[in-house]
Design a protein around this nucleic acid. Structure first.
Lengths: 238, 238
DNA sequence: CAGTGGTCTAGACCACGAA
DNA sequence: TCGTGGTCTAGACCACTGT
């Protein structure tokens, strides 16, 4: 037997699938569910964690567990700057700071170089959806005042204007748990893995014009990368 | 305070970082650690789960918790067929089957179409590393006998030969928990998220020549995608 | 305030790995 | 067999959300 949490998760999954629990509706409280399945708290919460990771259930702290709408995942499109067709509104906080730590290596600038940080949170309705920290060398950043009040507009329209053409975008994708700060900002459980994307955009001279650190909660986001093979590529042999 | 597990994880992390726990070495048993930190099992295991998700600690069931070597992550390179320079040996099991379910849509073939499945497990030393299920329409697959005994060789050299040139590769990346079967095959905890990649390769006529379902454990793998912008692309405005 | 989820304690029993 | 991690019970207390 594949542990009790899977059995409970399977049952709840089918209840959501066939509509006995309506999309958007609240599940019974964890205490009630635990009583119904005759288990104690941990296995029940583990079952909910499975469904949460699948994106079928969303937990909200003092309120309850909710069945998700028809499992709408947003898709991050790789290969370029944050696309203008972001379907979600974004709040941006602009900060001036000096590069330190990993950022130096990523940006290819000496320590202490001035950079502009755009701290972006996209929203899906009232709740936060995903998070991006975008770093641009100060002299390349739009001349917006730092700490402008949260600015609900799309990222791309802010970043679209005076930037040089970029010729290469490298995106590194990995999985990690959110930092406590990220979990608080995104209002997700600290056990829900996020898709972390480090995007480095380089212009025609080889200079790094943008570094973006994205955190996309694994239950509500995915990323897609498309590669066109225009040239005939050689095939290597063993 | 950010919950007790983080405090414990921070302490263990620094112990690993400064070498008090040597790379590859075994940590004290969970009972001993729990006694040392004066906590009960759950928070201690939660702390280990954090380090495990970071790739710093590897759990092996009847043996113990082990500090990872200098955190060597393997990198999946997107944008093409599985690269020949896979650094890890791969075992392949070949099966003939007929497409059903999602596979039809992905392959763009009618239900029941014959396909060849390559079930691939890459190995890092003695332990399994990651997992791939590759589906190719039967008439495009190399004429290897199905169920050939596990064949330790690189994926690419098997798939390199008689396949048509592919012109488009679309890779969909998301995060999920492993299925119980995957967790068993990969010998990972069922709570450790995996990077799931669905790769669809299309040839010059638009026909799908390969569908690959990859599962890369999040603690030991990452993926990188590079996009070259050869043409000058228009910039969209709000 | 009441109801919810988040974290924790202290212990039990099962499953796996090596000798 | 023994020591290990994996799962579970049955509670307790804290933190967040709404009234």
């Amino acid at each position: 037997m594949a542990s009790r949490r899977h059995a409970i998760a399977d049952d709840l999954r089918s209840r959501i699938a066939d509509g006995r629990i309506k999309p958007g509706g609240r599940l019974p409280s964890e205490a009630q569910l635990a009583a119904h399945y005759a288990v104690s708290t941990p296995p029940l919460r583990n079952a909910l964690a499975l469904l949460q990771a699948e994106g079928l259930v969303e937990k909200i702290h003092g309120k309850g567990n909710f069945a998700r709408q028809p499992l709408r995942r947003t898709t991050y499109v790789g290969g370029g700057r944050t696309p203008a067709r972001t379907p979600l509104p974004v709040s941006i906080r602009t900060t001036w700071l000096r590069a330190r730590g990993h950022l130096n290596a990523l940006l290819g600038v000496p320590p202490g170089s001035p950079v502009t940080e755009f701290f972006c949170v996209s929203h899906d309705g009232k709740s936060p959806h995903s998070l991006a920290r975008i770093y641009v060398p100060r002299d390349l950043a739009p001349a917006a005042a730092p700490d402008a009040s949260p600015w609900p507009q799309e990222v791309a329209s802010l970043l679209a204007g005076p930037l040089p053409q970029l010729t290469k975008v490298q995106e590194n994708v990995h999985v990690r748990l959110p930092t406590p700060s990220e979990a608080a900002t995104l209002r997700i459980s600290s056990t829900l893995a996020v898709l972390a994307i480090t995007r480095v955009a380089t212009d025609i001279t080889g200079r790094v014009v943008e570094v973006a650190l994205l955190a996309l909660p694994g239950d509500r986001a995915e990323a897609v990368f498309t590669t066109e093979h225009t040239t005939t590529e050689r095939r290597q042999e063993g």
